[in-house]
Design a protein around this nucleic acid. Structure first.
Lengths: 265, 265
DNA sequence: CTATGCATGTCGATA
DNA sequence: TATCGACGTGCATAG
């Protein structure tokens, strides 16, 4: 990594450094005293203070205060950036974004650290289990849900949406299964209920509805009880063990056009 | 701002610098080559590459790749941080978080830049308008919605949720108003529909349902039409003008316990 | 403390 | 390109 680092630079001289860095698609860090105005979907003003500003290689801008996960102000990667030095004002950074039209203005009155460097980052990022993965694993290993379950389709269109897994149980009853990787809330139960109702209307037969999650909120349990829906705790660790047998990534289109790719047997 | 800045330090010597910085509640920046593992609600692995790691004064950790708004890995401010140097491995940073239990491990094999400094940031941050503000302004100036409207309550409990504004129109019909500060999607329409249905069931009278937003998605408009709901465009600029007459922040409790604070006249 | 809903949400996939 | 739904969503607030 080649980089440029300046301690307590004069603001005037920084303008060209920053412009050069942005033109060469480098990542720029600025630490110093600034104020920030934002105008777009909302409006905000941040009074002067010491912050870290990051301008990434794709034009994303983040203004970070010394605490908290979230940037206090930002602009996603779609922004156009302009840098000016205004005598008596300071170093002004404008970031403009179209659609939605949003403006971000950062005014630095002092900069302690300037860094510009081209980060080389080709490392792969893998999320080991997300809801899709969980769905695929369970669809391919339905005994993890209950014995004798036969999966007919995943992401089956029902009513307004898609139910995660559509199956038939050992007593030949139809089963709609909704999955949550995190604690299931009442919302999830209601969603499943809508699927069950829609299915009943469409196909004339009331299916079982099972909500599967590692945990359930009290209101979810109560609602499930009231709406005559089943729920089942799942151990994510156990599911993850089955993820090793690498399955082809299942695409939505595989299941929405015809039945040739349905999981049936 | 007092700070410490090191260029291409040896990893061994960094351990104490970082520990000292964390103990003194400083913000730490590390730029260099690292890999990252995460385990918690999900699991992820990030292969080696050059990144920026931020450890904030409250223990929040962000791992940023050279592009994009979002950190690739992170830990919110509730984390406990441990720093170790492992011979033959590198500089290891562990961040543990309770509730939910989550582990983040960063392993640096090279560091180009180390920065530690106590940022002083007392600047005030003001968000000029959010949905609450919009709700309060419209509740206090209902003529912006339509002539003759009398607001009875805001955040009125209806069914499962709370409708933003509950009012009575000039013909004495009940009106449920749902607000969106951004483009309203079908979801917003469905939400309003649920309120209208729930209200009908609870109070026996079918109210008007009005969705108010600066813009509407086509599916939102279509759904509104199908569900017999009204929609109204609102100019945020115009609403914002009425925000100058500073209103006391309206609390939910003002409207849910008794009627003494209701907006009625 | 948990539950609920908003967010300048952001991001990715789909039509 | 716009829309839709998920997210390790984070975060504030109400109960």
């Amino acid at each position: 990594m080649s980089f440029k680092l300046l301690e307590s630079p004069r603001l005037e001289e920084l303008v060209n450094y920053i412009k050069t860095a942005l033109n060469s698609k480098s990542t720029v860090l600025l630490i110093g005293e600034c104020r920030v105005d934002y105008e777009g979907r909302a409006s905000s003003r941040l009074e002067p203070g010491e912050r870290l500003v990051i301008i990434k290689q794709d034009g994303a801008i983040l203004v970070h205060r010394p605490t908290g996960y979230s940037p206090v102000n930002w602009q996603p990667s779609t922004s156009i950036i302009e840098v000016i030095y205004k005598e008596g004002v300071g170093l002004v950074i404008h970031a403009l974004r179209d659609r939605p039209r949003e403006y971000l203005t950062i005014v630095f009155t002092r900069i302690n650290i300037f860094f510009a460097g081209k980060l080389v980052d080709a490392g792969n990022f893998t999320m080991y289990i997300d809801e899709k993965e969980m769905r695929d694993i369970l669809a391919n290993n339905p005994f993890l849900i209950e014995d004798g379950l036969r999966v007919i389709a995943v992401e089956k269109p029902v009513g307004d949406g898609f139910v995660d897994i559509y199956a038939i149980d050992k007593d030949n009853r139809h089963v709609l299964i909704e999955l949550k990787r995190v604690t299931a809330t009442r919302e999830a139960v209601i969603q499943l209920y809508k699927y069950v109702e829609a299915y009943k209307n469409e196909f004339g037969e009331k299916p079982r509805g099972i909500l599967i999650a590692p945990a359930f909120s009290p209101s979810a349990l109560e609602t499930a009880l009231n709406l005559d829906l089943e729920y089942k705790y799942i151990d994510l660790k156990k599911v993850r063990e089955y993820s090793k047998k690498k399955v082809r990534r299942t695409l939505l289109s595989d299941f929405t056009t015809g039945s040739k790719n349905d999981f049936s047997h």
